[in-house]
Design a protein around this nucleic acid. Structure first.
Length: 192
DNA sequence: TAGCTGATTGACT
DNA sequence: GTCAATCAGCTAA
């Protein structure tokens, strides 16, 4: 059962923390791939200069819509990045999913990525993650509570040691502590 | 229509 | 450590 819509009705910062340890599931035809979310970043509304809500009008409709929707954008002409919209209607904000630890379909992911099965770089990094799971801009606006792309609750209730730090790779407003990852997990993307 | 920029990656020195 | 690849969507004209 995917996470309910209500789960996404919280602040981007809180959602970024809560998504750690949850499982991102992608279904493409008969191929199912999934991975545990190990690294996220929060992006706020217009007050956050690094958020697309602040400078990409084309994404406004999604940002201000209900939570639980996928926002996929292309960066540097070749990398797609996956976000989950956070908050209720009228509240802008989203969570960038930067890295997952492969669970199901590792072989299919490795094939898409062109790296050996079991590689730690299989889905570490926003661009790698979307390629491994077969996420493209066609998923922009997709419903994460029902559809080919969903997020499921974490296994059990075991607490994860969470680390935090400044966001990576952004040109505007660096220094905000809005990046979260599972401490010690080898699948977290490398820093700058 | 032309030019610019970027929430990146991987290959190379 | 440097740097090229490559394109959607904006801006200026």
């Amino acid at each position: 059962m995917p996470l309910s819509r209500a789960f996404y009705f919280q602040s981007p910062r809180a959602l970024a923390r809560d998504l750690l340890g949850c499982v991102l599931v992608s279904r493409s035809g008969s191929i199912v791939t999934s991975g545990m979310i190990v690294e996220t970043e929060a992006y706020l509304g217009p007050e956050d200069a690094a958020s697309h809500a602040a400078f990409r009008p084309g994404s406004h409709a999604l940002f201000y819509g209900p939570g639980g929707i996928a926002y996929v954008f292309r960066a540097y002409g070749m990398h797609d990045c996956l976000n989950a919209i956070a908050g209720d209607v009228g509240r802008a904000g989203c969570v960038l999913i930067r890295a997952v630890e492969p669970l199901q379909g590792a072989a299919a992911m490795a094939r898409r990525r062109g790296v050996p099965v079991g590689s730690r770089r299989l889905a570490s990094g926003p661009g790698n993650l979307t390629r491994a799971l077969g996420v493209t801009r066609r998923h922009n606006g997709a419903d994460l509570t029902a559809g080919p792309l969903t997020i499921e609750p974490r296994d059990g209730d075991r607490a994860q040691p969470i680390a935090r730090g400044p966001r990576v790779g952004i040109a505007r407003d660096p220094g905000r502590i809005l990046r979260f990852w599972i401490a010690g997990n080898p699948h977290v993307s490398r820093g700058p």
